[in-house]
Amino acid sequence: MKIVDPTSGLPGDAEIASVAHDGIPEDALCLLSNSKPGATELLRGVAARLEAERGFTDIGFASKPQAAHPTAEETLDHLAAQYRMAIVAIGD
């Protein structure tokens, strides 16, 4: 029998272009906390290990205003313009 695929649809996002400036170091890293209890502490711990063991410096940090709310577009744009990588805490 022929059925209509219930998962079918159209991709919602066009290809996302890199927005980091050319002068930004390859290892420019930021942290983004989802503001769940403990998330920031977890990220700070990861950052400390990366600094101690991998030589990362100037690791940036941002957080959502509250766990249930989405990250503001301006925050994402700001991070995307300054960093090449982000570690996101998504758990409790």
């Binding site: 059925i3 209509v4 695929d5 219930p6 998962t7 079918s8 649809g9 159209l10 991709p11 919602g12 996002d13």
Partner: peptide, 22 residues
């Protein structure tokens, strides 16, 4: 329709109807 997160897929009326049938 707008994209549906988390997959960010835009449903078609046909795919919505398919799920309604299901």
């Amino acid at each position: 329709f707008a994209p549906i997160p988390p997959a960010r897929m835009i449903p078609t009326l046909r795919s919505v109807a398919a799920n309604a049938v299901m």
